[in-house]
Each structure stands twice: as C-alpha cells, then as structure tokens.
C-alpha cells in the first residue's frame, strides 16, 4: 500500500502538478526536431564526403579523410560546445539551428562511411560487367552500383537515426530544452532524482522502439527482391 502510494505520488508530482508532463512533450518535440534536421544535414554532408573519397581525387580525399577522422576521434559534446561557443555564438542564430548543424556535421562523418561501405560492398564484377558493355563510369554508378548500394545503406541509415536520437541528449550543454534537459528541469523542481529520468528513459525507449520496428520492416522489404 505504502509503495503504491509512493509511486502514484511520484508520478503525480513529476508529471501532473504544474502540467510538468508538458516539459517532456516539448522536450521530445525538440529532440525529434534536432535529430531530424541533423540527420538531413548529415546525409547531405555524408553523400558529398563519400563521393569525395570514392573518386580518389587526392586533395578532396585528403580533406574528407581528415574530416572523418577528426569527427570520429572526438566526443560529440565537445564538438557541439566548440561549434556553439567558438564558431556560431556571436551569430545570434537560433540554438536549434546551431545544434542541428553541429549534430549534422557529426553525423555526416558516420553517414559518409556508411555510404562508402555500402558502395564498396557492391560486387566488383558489377562495375566490370557494366563497363564491358560500354557504359561510362557515371552511367554505371547511376544505374547499377548506386541502386544496389542504397539497399545496403538504408537499414544502416535508420540505425544512424536511432543513434542520433540518443546522442542529441547532450544538447542541454548549450541550454537547449531537449528531452533529457526536460528531465533535469523536472528534477530540479521536485527534488526526485529517479522518477524524472526513468520517465525520460521510457520516452527515449518508446521512440527508438518505434524506429526499430520500422527499420525491421524496411529491411524485410528491401530483402524481398533478393
């Protein structure tokens, strides 16, 4: 009886009182927005970087490789804070935009590797067969290699989206009210260290579970033609 009372009391004070659940809702909304924009930016950067690396133009390849190494070799929080304070702070740009760019730049490095791996995974004989028919390199990429690579890349890309959703939890470092920070705000009001973050965790898990569900469906559909 006592335990049940404590539980309902905790939920009441952390969710209902002062409509605190709204903090979580807005936080999730912010988290989803950052993730979505960042992923789009990441895909664009990733594509460009992957192309730069695949074409073997020395200068481009060098720059692209440096970018990938730097991004992958440093924590995303540090990148976010550097971009926020050192690069874009004085610009007066909205924080959501800055965070999206920062996470996008971060994601681009990983996405570029996904794309590169997806293209490399296409059998070498495909390029040879297409070229032997007289198709140019670009025609071969467009009609033969890329369509097959997309199949390799898409599931990994959904996975990257799931990772992104969780990684944006450090957005609070630049005082952006994302889901994790919402938990922090509630905690500071209720002085309950457990309940807010258990709730936050539940929301993250719920969101990623939905995404995983769609990822599995997508993967199954892509494999249908194999």
């Amino acid at each position: 009886m006592g335990l049940l009372y404590t539980l309902s009391d905790a939920l009441y004070s952390n969710l209902i009182r002062e409509s605190r659940y709204l903090l979580l809702v807005r936080g999730l909304n912010m988290t989803v927005q950052i993730s979505l924009y960042a992923l789009l930016i990441g895909i664009v950067i990733g594509l460009l970087v992957a192309v730069a690396r695949i074409t073997h133009i020395k200068v481009l390849d060098g720059i692209a490789k440096l970018y990938v190494d730097v991004i992958r070799g440093t924590p995303v929080v540090v990148q976010l804070v550097i971009i926020y304070y050192a690069v874009l702070a004085g610009s007066g740009l909205p924080k959501l935009l800055i965070a999206s760019v920062a996470f996008g730049i971060n994601s681009g490095a990983y996405v570029s590797e996904l794309i590169r791996a997806g293209i490399m995974a296409v059998d070498k004989g495909q390029m040879e067969a297409a070229r032997s028919l007289g198709l140019s390199y670009f025609q071969t990429m467009r009609f033969v290699i890329v369509p097959q690579a997309v199949k390799n890349i898409l599931p990994a890309l959904v996975n990257e989206a799931i990772v992104m959703l969780k990684e944006t939890s450090v957005a609070g470092y630049i005082a952006l009210d994302d889901l994790t920070r919402a938990g922090n705000v509630i905690r500071s009001r209720t002085f309950d260290p457990y309940t807010p973050f258990l709730l936050v965790a539940a929301v993250y898990l719920y969101a990623t579970t939905i995404m995983t569900f769609f990822a599995t469906k997508l993967e199954r559909r892509l494999h249908a033609s194999d």
Binding site: D123, Q126, E128, G134, L135, S136, V144, Q148, S225
Partner: peptide
C-alpha cells in the same frame, strides 16, 4: 567506352545486375 561497345564480354560469375 565506345571501343568496348564492339567487344562483348561474358564472365565466369555472370555478373547480371540484380537490381534489374
């Protein structure tokens, strides 16, 4: 590319395009 159009090639591993 032009020259290769005159020379057809058939491979041991077929190399058909699985997406088509």
């Amino acid at each position: 590319d032009k020259l290769r159009q005159k020379v057809g090639m058939v491979f041991q591993q077929f190399n058909l395009f699985p997406n088509l």
